[in-house]
Design a protein around this nucleic acid. Structure first.
Lengths: 206, 206
DNA sequence: GCCTCCCATGACACTGGGTGTCAAGTATGA
DNA sequence: TCATACTTGACACCCAGTGTCATGGGAGGC
């Protein structure tokens, strides 16, 4: 009736179709493998046309990987929220922990998806693209934070790269663990990784 | 006549077509942009059919990026060739310098290609895929070198990731430089980057 | 309650990347 | 000289992704 529920209705309709599509996709892809499933098949399973699929997702890969889009901004915000003057290793640790703990909390749903991504070349490529975007975001935020020029100074990009290398290593390890036990120890692993990185991250002399 | 020149002839024919194809591709892509050029166009320019193009290159991206294929093995070999007991930072520095100096030596041809790759999303994605392969190779070699298990121990993958983060940061900086001056200073930059990394790379306590 | 406008959808056609298949051409090797 | 194997082009095909248009249903104004 009012503007609120009216908008909310359209919104919810859209959300409904999107979930239907992702659910169908995830199920089919996990079952038959990425290449053996066509977009037509996914769309039909979800009860819409192929054309509609592409109005919701930019590509066949996107239906799996799209949830990664926001994480760059999340990590950047997480970094921006850290207190001024905090050591880079500490600040970056918290920044990178954001998506990791999110994963851990929804391990039930997230783990199969992560595994699917890591073992499907086309999906992995998109994942790496997202990581590269995150690296840019972290680079900019870190440079701003430290008052450095990311074009002239190697440190910001390097530090961002190190943080994401830790993220990637931990994610791979986490995805190999048992379904049940590994819910929370991603936090421990990322801490371990940053303990190794800290000597380099925090010697900001130049 | 003998087996030698006979094989060499077939080989050279193949090589000839391949270079014709890459030359045509590089010229057209640099001129019109990646998306505005079709494989048909490239093939026709090189004087062959589209079908033949795909007998030489696995994808449209590959014709630009294919030369990266060997670099993983090169870097791995470069790492394996370092003396036992050398500090990881030193060994990895030399390992990663191999492709970088190769780039520097052929800067005339390499620079435009690198720039094309870095500013074309589809090409960048393939580049990142290659980097991921290199990271696996370095991880394995480094683990073997240090007698560590890359599945149980975060250090090898993390160190490989750091090395490639340095590689990537330096490559990006190098590609931004002036056409003339930056031939040799990639070496200086990668040294600078590894100086930052060394405190973390060489504290192999755990 | 009706009419209008907007928006989501489906149908359709089309481009372009990538592959399987087959037939013809060419060089090699006996 | 003939048989063989390899390379190529032609053609048909699949599928991802996009532009376009007609339609239908729902929301808001009257």
């Amino acid at each position: 009736m009012t503007t609120r529920s009216e908008l909310s209705l359209a919104q919810r309709k859209r959300q409904l179709v999107a979930t239907e599509l992702t659910d169908a996709a995830l199920q089919l892809l996990a079952l038959k493998g990425f290449d053996a499933v066509t977009v037509d098949e996914i769309a039909t399973t979800a009860g819409v046309s192929k054309r509609t699929f592409f109005r919701y997702f930019a590509s066949k890969e996107d239906v799996v990987v799209q949830f990664l889009s926001g994480m760059g901004a999340d990590m950047r915000a997480g970094l921006a929220a850290r207190p001024d003057g905090e050591r880079p290793s500490e600040a970056l640790l918290h920044s990178v922990s954001v998506p990791l703990t999110t994963c851990g909390e929804h391990a039930e749903r997230a783990l199969p998806v992560v595994r699917l991504i890591l073992r499907t070349p086309a999906l992995l490529a998109r994942f790496l693209e997202h990581q590269a975007e995150w690296r840019e975001e972290l680079t900019e935020e870190l440079a701003a934070r430290l008052g450095r020029d990311p074009e002239a100074d190697l440190y910001p990009r390097l530090a961002a790269g190190m943080a994401l290398a830790a993220f990637d290593a931990v994610l791979r390890r986490w995805s190999e663990g048992e379904d049940t036990e590994s819910t929370a120890d991603a936090g421990a692993l990322i801490g371990e990784a940053f303990a190794m990185l800290a000597p380099a991250l925090d010697s900001v002399t130049s």
